[in-house]
Amino acid sequence: MDIFLQQIINGLVVGGIYALIALGYTMVYGILQLINFAHGEIVMIGAMVTISCINFLVGHNVNLSGPVLLTVSIAMAIPVTMLLGYLIERVAYRPLRKAPRMAPLITAIGLSIVLQQAATMIWGKNYVPFPAILPTDVLEIGGASITTLQVAIIILTAVILTGLFLLIERTKLGRAMRATAQSPDVARLMGVNVNTIISMTFMIGSALGAIAGVLVAANYDQAHAYMGFMVGLKAFTAAVLGGIGNLGGAVLGGILLGIIESIGSGYLGDLTGGFLGSQYKDIFAFLVLILVLIFRPSGLMGERVAERA
């Protein structure tokens, strides 16, 4: 039982991170019907900038406790990724808004390569360790271990999600975003500045990406110029699983994916007598995805799109 609980906790932590990143994908998709493949790289840049900030502050003998130091550094990294998100949209996506939908997909892949290489130039080819500034206390819950950082990840994810929902549902900006997602033309008629809204969406998504990047780096104690690709891919899968374009779906998809992976690689080996083991971890996610999509072609929480072409 403690093993099972442990696996659920493992899954929740990873799932929370997936959910944060998946939100970035899904927000952009909801408005532009565009897969922002460079989002994984924004996550990476967020982590790298934060680590550099922490090292800079520690190097200049700024005496702050670990969590405060981290918060200050994230606060410095967020504007960087927001600017980056804004620029990406401006340079690579906006000129192609009326182009065939494959075109922005290719610029996104190109951007992804460029950002990876740029990060290699700045931070080098080595893995960058996350500075040991956070407490590493381990809590015991019913025989399962969880670190304070992991507790913080779960709480932080929940807080950010609530904030985002309030933003989307209760504020004027949120209303404008929803209107743009439904129909940009009508939104424009109603006096919404669609371009500003799209830029805002990219910036909010990038800010979430930066936070997620820091959490990934802190949880695994390292960052790397190529780290964004894999985690981005998983998060995108999560977004589709939940129904892409749907915020709640992204969260549900992320957490579900995290738990499926954890339980799958933890138990399947024993259940199948060693035939299917943890080497198939990356497959479980996709198998579940395919099964879900066969029965619900728009994802778990996606709206059913009428059959029209």
Binding site: G11, Y220, Q222, G266, D270, K281
Partner: peptide, 10 residues
């Protein structure tokens, strides 16, 4: 991969 929690748990 960077997450080994589930295999380590098992």
């Amino acid at each position: 991969e960077t997450d080994f929690n589930s295999i380590l748990t098992s």
